[in-house]
Design a binder for these strands. Structure first.
Length: 212
DNA sequence: TCTATGATCGTA
DNA sequence: ACGATCATAGAG
């Protein structure tokens, strides 16, 4: 496909354009709908990790009983209450990290959980981090097909909480010349005990890289 | 302090 | 279907 020379110019990662702050200063629902088909990047040392986002979930602030922000600000969820465009990472079940994109203006505690990506770059390192110790490689579909899995694969943990997604460590990007997905699947959110009725999970319907 | 629970994952 | 495993939040 031919590149439009009047459009956004490619950044250092190639023909990808980092999403601007304005992308995140919207409701979590609006951001969540737009994320499937976009790309997650992480620079760690000399390794570049990349994945195509295939599954996300929207969480609102104090009006969503499933949200960590439902009962107000705490030390854990405070980055959710900040301006959109930062990463909210939390630890759960005693062993897993999950990462969210914070959305909305300061004071609006919305966030979008990234649940699965299709691994595209850094796959050797992902396999190393995700191996059960026996050094064998996993099926590419099992590398990032869940919120805990993708954080492990990308090396996202406590230290990454609050990272500015408009910086050069972890960021989201659009691929030049690529159209939005034709169809986006919707369903109830997974693994929650309240707020079950809303269809706030968004995914690409035709990939094998979503969670189960 | 003490206790219940969890935006999960791998194995059985 | 279940256990691992522990930070967090809310209660006492």
């Amino acid at each position: 496909m031919k590149r439009d020379s009047t459009g956004p110019q490619p950044d250092a990662s190639g023909h990808f354009t980092k999403l601007p702050r304005s992308f995140y200063i919207r409701s979590s629902l609006a951001v969540a709908r737009d994320l499937p088909g976009l790309y997650l990047f992480r620079k760690s040392g000399k390794t570049l990790f990349a994945g195509r986002i295939v599954e996300v979930e929207a969480y609102r602030g104090t009006n969503d009983p499933a949200s960590h922000a439902y009962r107000g600000m705490t030390p854990r969820n405070e980055v959710m209450f900040g301006e959109g465009g930062r990463l909210y990472v939390y630890f759960t079940y005693g062993m897993h990290y999950c990462c969210n994109v914070v959305t909305g203006a300061k004071g609006d505690a919305g966030a979008v959980l990234i649940r699965a990506v299709e691994p595209l770059a850094g796959i050797r390192a992902m396999n190393r981090r995700r191996s059960a110790g026996d050094g064998r490689n996993r099926d590419r579909r099992e590398l990032c097909s869940g919120p805990g899995k993708l954080c492990q694969a990308f090396g996202i943990g406590r230290r990454e909480n609050g990272i500015d997604l408009c910086g050069g460590t972890i960021w989201l990007a659009r691929k030049g010349g690529e159209n939005p997905p034709r169809r986006i699947g919707r369903s109830r959110r997974i693994g929650i005990s309240s707020g079950r009725k809303h269809l706030w999970r968004f995914f690409l319907p035709d990939t094998p890289f979503v969670s189960r």
